[in-house]
Measured scan of single mutants.
Amino acid sequence: VRQEELAAARAALHDLMTGKRVATVQKDGRRVEFTATSVSDLKKYIAELEVQTGM
């Protein structure tokens, strides 16, 4: 499950970095929206997932 969450989070980051205004991911069973202003929060979430998956 964590691998899927990590892939979704990375895709969301890619979307935001390429101009999409809002990206949505499932985080702990709930839907979370990230915007360009919350990229740093999304990067932290990705880092947490990488630690949890041993990457």
Rank of each mutant, 00 (worst) to 15 (best):
A12M: 03
H14A: 11
K44P: 00
R31P: 14
K20Q: 10
A36H: 12
Y45M: 07
L13F: 05
T18I: 08
E48Q: 11
R2Q: 11
L13D: 00
T18Y: 07
D41N: 06
L42Q: 01
A7P: 03
M17A: 05
Y45T: 02
A8P: 01
V51Q: 15
T24P: 04
S40A: 13
Q26L: 15
Q26W: 15
K44E: 09
Q52C: 07
A9D: 00
E50V: 08
R2Y: 13
V39C: 07
R30H: 11
L6R: 01
K43P: 00
T35S: 08
K44V: 08
L49V: 03
Y45L: 11
G54W: 04
M17W: 04
V22Y: 07
A8R: 11
V32H: 07
E5D: 08
Q3W: 14
D28F: 02
A11E: 08
A23G: 05
M17H: 05
K44I: 09
T24A: 13
V32D: 03
Q3G: 10
K20L: 08
Q3I: 14
K20V: 09
A36D: 07
I46Y: 00
F34M: 03
V1F: 14
A47W: 12
K20Y: 04
E48A: 08
I46R: 00
D41F: 07
R30D: 06
F34L: 04
A8G: 06
G54V: 05
L6H: 02
M55P: 10
K43G: 03
E50I: 08
T24Q: 08
A36S: 11
E48V: 08
L13N: 00
Q26P: 06
V22N: 06
R30V: 14
D28V: 03
R31V: 15
A8T: 07
V1N: 14
F34G: 01
M17S: 05
R21P: 14
R30S: 08
E48S: 08
L49W: 03
F34E: 01
T37I: 09
L16E: 00
V1D: 14
S40D: 15
A7F: 11
S40W: 05
Q3S: 12
S40Y: 05
A12V: 03
A7D: 11
L42F: 02
V32Q: 06
V39W: 05
R30A: 08
R10N: 05
Q52L: 15
S40K: 10
T18S: 13
R10D: 01
V25L: 11
L16K: 00
A47N: 08
V32G: 03
I46C: 02
M17I: 06
R21S: 13
V39G: 02
A23C: 06
V39K: 04
D41Y: 07
A11Q: 13
V32S: 03
G29E: 04
E33N: 06
A9Y: 07
L49Q: 01
L49K: 01
T35N: 09
V51E: 14
E33K: 07
A23V: 15
E50S: 06
K27W: 04
L13I: 03
A23H: 02
A7W: 12
S38F: 04
A9W: 04
T35C: 09
K27P: 03
R10G: 02
T53M: 15
T18H: 14
A9P: 00
T37Y: 07
R31S: 12
Q52N: 11
V22E: 06
L49C: 02
G29N: 05
T37E: 15
F34V: 03
L6P: 00
E5F: 07
F34A: 01
L16G: 00
R30L: 10
G29M: 03
R10V: 07
K20N: 07
D28H: 05
R10L: 11
D15W: 05
I46N: 01
A47M: 11
L13H: 02
S40P: 11
V51I: 13
T35P: 04
M17Y: 06
K43H: 07
A36V: 12
V25N: 02
D28L: 03
R31H: 09
T53I: 15
R21A: 15
G54I: 07
A11M: 11
K20F: 05
L16F: 02
A12Y: 02
Y45I: 07
Y45N: 01
G19A: 03
A12W: 02
L49A: 02
V25P: 01
A8L: 12
A12H: 01
E4R: 15
A23R: 03
H14M: 10
V1G: 14
G29L: 03
V25W: 02
K43Y: 11
V22C: 10
G19Y: 02
R31E: 11
Y45A: 02
E50K: 04
R21F: 08
K43A: 08
E33P: 03
F34Q: 01
E50C: 05
M17Q: 08
R30W: 07
L6S: 01
L13M: 05
E50Q: 06
T37V: 09
V32M: 11
A36T: 10
L16P: 00
H14Q: 11
R2V: 13
D15Q: 13
D41R: 06
E48N: 06
L6W: 04
A7T: 09
R21I: 13
L49E: 00
L13C: 04
Q52W: 09
R10E: 03
R31T: 14
M55Q: 14
K20A: 14
R10S: 03
Q52I: 14
T53F: 15
A12N: 01
V22M: 09
T24K: 05
L13S: 00
V32A: 04
V25R: 02
K43Q: 11
L6C: 03
D28S: 06
A9Q: 01
E33G: 03
Q26K: 09
R10M: 09
K27A: 06
Y45E: 01
A36R: 11
A23Q: 03
T35Q: 05
T53L: 15
E48K: 07
G54Q: 10
D41S: 08
V51C: 12
R21M: 14
A47S: 10
V22F: 09
H14V: 10
Q52A: 13
S40V: 10
V25A: 04
Q3Y: 14
L13T: 00
A8H: 07
E5H: 08
R21N: 11
R31I: 15
K20I: 08
K43S: 05
S38H: 09
G29R: 03
T53Y: 15
D28E: 08
L49I: 05
L16Y: 01
V25Y: 01
R21W: 06
K27T: 06
E4D: 12
F34P: 00
H14D: 07
T35Y: 11
L42V: 02
V51L: 14
D15V: 05
S38Y: 03
M17C: 09
R10P: 00
K43C: 09
D15T: 05
R21K: 13
Q52F: 09
R10C: 08
Q3E: 11
G29T: 03
T37L: 11
E4K: 13
Q3M: 14
K20H: 12
L6K: 01
M17D: 04
S38P: 01
D15N: 08
T37P: 04
Q3C: 13
E4I: 13
E5W: 08
A9N: 01
V51G: 11
T18E: 08
A12K: 01
K27R: 15
T24V: 15
A7E: 10
M55V: 14
G19W: 00
E33F: 08
V1Q: 13
T37K: 10
H14N: 12
D28Y: 03
L16N: 00
M55D: 11
L16D: 00
K27C: 09
F34I: 04
G19M: 02
A12P: 00
V1A: 13
Y45V: 04
A47R: 13
V51H: 14
L16S: 00
I46T: 00
M17P: 00
G19Q: 03
K20C: 08
L42C: 02
T35W: 07
G19F: 02
L13W: 04
V39H: 03
I46D: 00
T18L: 09
